[in-house]
């Protein structure tokens, strides 16, 4: 029984890891008030999804899908290719967010979200 569970866990180790990473990211996102940390959390979440995506295309013992003699087992190249794009997007998102944080720090003198709110005041109405 327990062996079975372990086997299943092992079989889905990448998915499992990605979910755990995702949750870690979310946890950080929620609990930290520092904007930089929030961004890091965002990146962790992104990474989790990337891992998940790449894991879909992975095949045990597979190689890069280049037509060379002697290699017969390929991984699915599509997810990797997509994730490359995803990484680019993630990088630009992060960079942009960092630039905004710099601006925020210039305007408010802090990068703590609570303090920013306190300075800005609750202007909901």
């Amino acid at each position: 029984m327990s062996v079975e569970i372990l086997e299943r866990l092992y079989g889905n180790i990448y998915y499992l890891t990605s979910v755990i990473l995702f949750v870690i990211g979310f946890h950080t996102m929620l609990t930290h008030r520092n904007l930089i940390k929030k961004l890091m959390a965002l990146n962790i979440m992104d990474t989790a999804i990337f891992l998940f995506f790449v894991a879909i295309g992975y095949r045990e013992g597979g190689q890069a899908p280049i037509l060379l003699p002697g290699v017969e087992r390929f991984v699915n190249p599509v997810p990797s290719a997509l994730i490359l794009t995803g990484i680019v997007i993630s990088v630009s998102f992060t960079a942009f967010a960092l630039a905004l944080v710099v601006l925020l720090h210039k305007h408010y003198g802090t990068i703590d979200s609570d303090e920013i709110i306190a300075i800005r005041g609750k202007k909901y109405v």
Binding site: A95, L98, A99, V102, L103, H105, K106
Partner: peptide
């Protein structure tokens, strides 16, 4: 990007 951040930082 790097230059941007650097310059933004310097301005800060």
């Amino acid at each position: 990007l790097f230059q941007e951040l650097l310059e933004g930082g310097s301005d800060e």
